[in-house]
Amino acid sequence: MANNRVLQWAVMARTWWIYDANLQCPFRSSERIITYLKGKHKPIYHPFADIGDHVVVFNTRHVAMRGNFWRTFKHFNHTRYAGGFSQASAWRVHEMDPTRIMEKACYQRLSGLPMKKTLMARLHLYPDEEIPQEILENVSGQIRQVQVVPKKLEDYTEEEIQNFPRLFEWPENYDVESYQRENQQEPDQHTTKKWRLD
């Protein structure tokens, strides 16, 4: 075949993928993302071959953790000096850098690979919808999300809420409001003292 050489370029070409992290679990998402970073979705995959793809992740500010994980999931750091250990709960880390949760989740799942820093350099994280044009124009495919994006109460119209089937209606004089607790910041039990803001 005359175009064999060009075909081989196409086989080895690095493609770009995009992933929408809106309301997605960062841990399950990272499992899917590192498949593309390592090139495991290709039939020519080999662990010694550097054939991973680029992945652009946006909306990392809007990732969703299950259960109590925003409070209890911790990020650790040690400066290697005596007493240099510190830890911060996920919500605090997220507050400081909205791409950090996603980055760390991917980096931890690449452990054991000598290539992991090279692969992480191919992961492009953006906190919101805005992606630079020079990045976006490379993208040729999209990775499917890991879970359904739930519809929020704000997304329903007033009419839909009124017409939703209900078993009974609250009495006119029933007090719903006073049971709602005031939204105040709790003391962060899981973060090292120097990271705390209060």
Partner: peptide
């Protein structure tokens, strides 16, 4: 891209 159709599970 990004497109909603190829993103949704």
């Amino acid at each position: 891209f990004p497109s909603k159709k190829f993103s949704q599970i």
